[in-house]
Structures are given as C-alpha cells and as structure tokens.
C-alpha cells in the first residue's frame, strides 16, 4: 500500500511549513516597536519644535541614528505585514489583492530606504 498522497490531490492543500511565519514576524516586529516608539514619542516631545541645527544634531547622534534606523526597519516591516492582512481580508478580487500586496511591499521598502538614507546623510553630514 502506498502511503504517499498523490501529488494531484495534495497540491494546494498541504502544509508549506511556513504558515506561522507571517504571524510570528508580526508579533516579533510588534514587540520590537513597543520600546522603540515609547523612546521616539518621548524624544518627539523635546525635538518636534527644535530648530534645524538641534534636530539635525539629535538625529545624527550615534545612538539616536541607530535607534531611528531600527525603528524605521521594524515600522515598515510591521506596516507591510499588517496591510497585507487587511488586503487579504477585504479585497476579494484575486488579482487586485495580489497587486495591492505587491504594491504595499514595494512602497514600504521604498519609504524605509528613503528614511534610512536620510538618517545616514544627517549622521554623516552628507
């Protein structure tokens, strides 16, 4: 007796062994964002009205720029994972759903890179 399921029957139904990845990545980025955003909002109360030189000095300091880059990475990763779930739940047209997910992924990456490059330019006085 052959215990192996015919490929035609299992294709599209079986476990790809990655079902929990999205869930786990969303939680991991959420946990990282808790301290990062508490730090960021607390800093914002001081820095938000600062003049150009003070703001640039704050962003450019080694600890702040490192934390900002971590925050930007975790933020856009988490946002993209969250938007994906929203699209999967509310967009029922398959091609539009996939197109939206692809678009939001590219957009998140683009914005993250722009923000990180900006932080590095400020830090290194570009």
């Amino acid at each position: 007796m052959n215990m192996r399921a015919p490929l035609a029957r299992v294709r599209g139904h079986g476990s790809a062994k990655s079902g929990a990845h999205h869930w786990w990545a969303q939680r991991l980025s959420a946990i990282a964002l808790v301290p990062l955003f508490l730090w960021f909002v607390a800093s914002l109360t001081v820095i938000a009205t600062a003049d150009y030189a003070t703001a640039a000095k704050w962003v450019g300091s080694p600890y702040n720029s490192a934390l900002l880059i971590l925050l930007i990475g975790a933020l856009f990763y988490h946002a993209q994972l969250g938007m994906q779930v929203v699209f999967e739940d509310y967009i029922s047209t398959p091609w539009l759903q996939v197109a939206s997910i692809i678009l939001v992924r590219f957009l998140a990456l683009l914005l993250a890179v722009v923000a990180i490059v900006a932080v590095l330019r400020i830090a290194w006085g570009g």
């Binding site: 640039a56 933020l75 923000a115 400020i122």
Partner: peptide
C-alpha cells in the same frame, strides 16, 4: 494600523527634509 501606516509618510518627509 492603516492610519499609522499612512502616517509613517510624515516621518519619512520630516527626515528627508532634515537631510
């Protein structure tokens, strides 16, 4: 969550302008 995702543009604009 959706509002914050869109609002993250503010952070990008602020940093880009500062740079």
């Amino acid at each position: 969550g959706v509002f914050l995702s869109i609002g993250s543009l503010l952070l990008v604009c602020w940093l880009a302008a500062l740079a």
